Simulated scan of single mutants.
Amino acid sequence: MAQFIQRFHADKSAIRDELLSGLQEPQAITSPKYLYDALGSKLFEAICELPEYYPTRTEAAIFDAHADEIAASVGRGRTLVDLGAGNCAKAARLFPVLQPAHYVPIDISVDFLRDSVDTLQQRFPAMEITALGVDFSAPFALPDHVGPAQRLFFYPGSSIGNFAPADATAFLARLAQAGDNDGGLLISVDLVKAKPLLDAAYDDALGVTASFNLNLLNHLNTVLEADFNVRGWQHVAFFNTDQSRIEMHLEAKAAQTVRWRGGQRHFAAGERIHTENSYKYTAAGFAALLERAGFTLQQSWTDPQGWFMVCHAKASGNRP
């Protein structure tokens, strides 16, 4: 029987303070997690089906082509800790080869996990499942019954790219410290490639990614009781070669003043709100980041074009 543990409880006041703090910075900024309200999550699912958005299908192809090699490298029968599990589909795809003894899907809300986990339990009745509602980007502890030995942290989707490199190192260091020296990490990362390919992946011809980004303003209106006019803004996304990252922004089409309960901000024409970064790595650069975080790369797999990489790493004992 699946167990559900909810440790994260949204603090509306803290969320409001965080958003207002970012919006009032000289360069306005919001965390990418606020892109994923109910509509934003559905729009991102649509993005994953777009021809320009290669990461989802490329990662799936790597897992399909190398499933047996991946299982041989990471070991079968592990405790599979799925970070940002969502609908659990990526982990479930690997269950037949990884054969986890205990599956621990983690997401910021257990409610989102319930239906998926219930279905998984029917498909894999012998598997122990503990669903955990926690903000895994902050320090957290796993339940006592999830022992430290044989943990395999699973972080697919190149989501590590949403962290700045220093923050990514700190986050992965916490994972290295959360298991024994046999602890493992199975992680995906998007690799540096031609700028036109990267630009198109985040600014598709149908405008789905633009809708996804612009929907943030609807979310801000709800949370902050603000009056952003979505029609007055446009989506801007590009690969910043110097920083090796995709940047997403919302740009004011004309000068305007946005008001919210207790305050306001004037935006000049062309002024932007920075909504997301997605860092891209070279294979050698990501191996070095793993090393700094206390992991040693064991094996990696890429697609034929070298666009995307899946890595297995083990905690080295050399903790930062």
Score class of each variant (00 low, 15 high):
residue 78 R to K: 06
residue 79 T to H: 01
residue 67 A to S: 00
residue 87 N to Q: 00
residue 113 L to I: 02
residue 68 D to L: 02
residue 63 F to A: 13
residue 87 N to T: 04
residue 87 N to V: 10
residue 76 R to G: 09
residue 113 L to V: 05
residue 74 V to T: 12
residue 82 D to S: 10
residue 91 A to Q: 09
residue 111 D to P: 13
residue 64 D to N: 07
residue 66 H to R: 15
residue 104 V to I: 00
residue 64 D to P: 10
residue 100 P to D: 15
residue 76 R to N: 06
residue 111 D to T: 14
residue 107 D to N: 02
residue 68 D to Q: 01
residue 87 N to P: 00
residue 68 D to R: 04
residue 116 S to T: 07
residue 70 I to G: 00
residue 109 S to E: 09
residue 94 L to S: 05
residue 118 D to A: 03
residue 72 A to W: 13
residue 91 A to G: 01
residue 117 V to S: 01
residue 114 R to D: 12
residue 98 L to G: 10
residue 112 F to S: 05
residue 85 A to Q: 09
residue 115 D to G: 12
residue 83 L to Q: 12
residue 118 D to P: 03
residue 71 A to N: 03
residue 84 G to Q: 13
residue 96 P to Y: 06
residue 114 R to C: 12
residue 89 A to L: 13
residue 70 I to C: 04
residue 88 C to D: 00
residue 95 F to I: 09
residue 106 I to Y: 11
residue 109 S to F: 00
residue 111 D to K: 15
residue 111 D to W: 14
residue 69 E to G: 12
residue 114 R to W: 11
residue 71 A to E: 00
residue 86 G to W: 14
residue 80 L to K: 00
residue 85 A to D: 10
residue 80 L to F: 02
residue 108 I to R: 05
residue 108 I to T: 12
residue 70 I to R: 00
residue 92 A to Y: 15
residue 91 A to S: 11
residue 70 I to K: 00
residue 98 L to C: 11
residue 73 S to P: 14
residue 89 A to G: 06
residue 118 D to T: 03
residue 98 L to Q: 04
residue 63 F to D: 09
residue 82 D to W: 07
residue 95 F to C: 09
residue 85 A to C: 07
residue 97 V to D: 03
residue 109 S to T: 00
residue 75 G to R: 03
residue 88 C to W: 14
residue 71 A to V: 03
residue 93 R to A: 01
residue 107 D to I: 01
residue 103 Y to S: 13
residue 80 L to W: 05
residue 62 I to N: 09
residue 82 D to R: 08
residue 99 Q to K: 04
residue 92 A to R: 14
residue 107 D to A: 06
residue 97 V to I: 06
residue 85 A to S: 08
residue 98 L to I: 12
residue 97 V to M: 03
residue 80 L to I: 02
residue 96 P to D: 07
residue 107 D to W: 11
residue 70 I to N: 03
residue 77 G to S: 06
residue 118 D to M: 05
residue 99 Q to S: 00
residue 83 L to C: 12
residue 67 A to Q: 10
residue 102 H to L: 12
residue 68 D to F: 05
residue 64 D to H: 07
residue 114 R to A: 13
residue 107 D to R: 12
residue 72 A to C: 03
residue 64 D to L: 02
residue 77 G to D: 11
residue 87 N to H: 04
residue 62 I to K: 13
residue 75 G to L: 13
residue 93 R to T: 11
